[in-house]
Design a protein around this nucleic acid. Structure first.
Length: 260
DNA sequence: AGGTATGTTAATTG
DNA sequence: GCAATTAACATACC
């Protein structure tokens, strides 16, 4: 379930469990998520020490001691975990990395929509993929600038080229907390509202990270824990509305987020 | 059986 | 030119 807060948790776990460890071997158990051949991946990874993790939006770079990196993107169903080598593998374990302390790092993906690949330079990769700045590295004024003027609010917030990190769930959360209807047009917001939205985006992401991205443990007056059909707005009790906005299932409170 | 799911990209339609 | 919609990727769940 990976959006920015989830990937940030993976980054912290990587630093905790794998920093300083040397990669001994890489087993590709499902080649669909790997963009390079097993030989090429092994050539770039074997014997390299993991210096730590760098997160950018929903992308996680495993930084290597030769200055290069391994990129992981988790799609909709990817996870990253650690276990001892005695722990049996799961069917969904697509790429397995053996570390030099007997631990195993596992990239798991049910739907295989993510990707794993070696990259020479993370910044070059991000530029080539047209990924915008990370949502948490910008100040509020800069977020407003990046969002620009065009399109619907929902699509704009999810557009990784403008701002990297928000997905469907946290976009809905930010719009809920900002009191903005997801079908509103960015153009219709005055500067004050845009700044307030930018502030809300930052705050939602920061608080979600403080809760380790665990959506069930997010504050009870947030939208996310109630994101299911038939639920009521946790702030005013009005039944939540749901529909397709920007091509994705969207939840909002018709009272807190008045129609455009 | 059919619709839906946290992501991304390309193609198509308006 | 822009915005919105649809399809595709692959798989489990309701």
């Amino acid at each position: 379930m990976p959006e920015l807060p989830d990937i940030e948790l993976y980054r912290r776990q990587l630093d905790e469990h794998a920093r300083g460890r040397t990669l001994q071997s890489v087993a590709i158990r499902d080649a669909r998520v790997v963009q390079q051949s097993a030989d090429e991946l092994a050539k770039h990874l074997r014997g390299r020490r993991i210096e730590g993790g760098r997160r950018h939006g929903k992308n996680l770079f495993v930084l290597l001691n030769d200055g290069h990196a391994l990129l992981m993107h988790f799609g909709m169903t990817g996870t990253l975990g650690y276990a001892g080598e005695d722990t049996p593998l799961e069917d969904d374990d697509a790429v397995v990395f053996d570390l030099d302390d007997g631990q195993r790092m596992t990239y798991r993906s049910r739907r295989k929509l993510g990707k794993v690949l070696w990259v020479a330079e993370p910044d070059d990769y991000l530029a080539a993929q047209h990924i915008g700045p990370d949502a948490l590295e910008l100040r509020e004024r800069e977020i407003v600038q990046r969002l620009g003027d065009g399109g619907g609010l929902k699509a704009a917030l999810m557009d990784q080229g403008r701002l990297a990190g928000l997905g469907n769930v946290y976009t809905d959360e930010a719009l809920f907390q900002a009191g903005l209807h997801p079908r509103r047009m960015l153009r219709s917001l005055d500067d004050e509202y845009r700044l307030a939205l930018a502030k809300t985006i930052r705050q939602v992401l920061e608080v979600a990270i403080e809760h380790d991205g665990d959506r069930r443990r997010l504050p009870p007056d947030w939208l996310t824990p109630h994101r299911r059909k038939g639920a009521k707005c946790p702030r005013c009790g009005t039944p939540l509305e749901t529909g397709q906005v920007g091509g994705r299932t969207t939840f909002w409170c018709p009272r807190e987020q008045p129609s455009p």
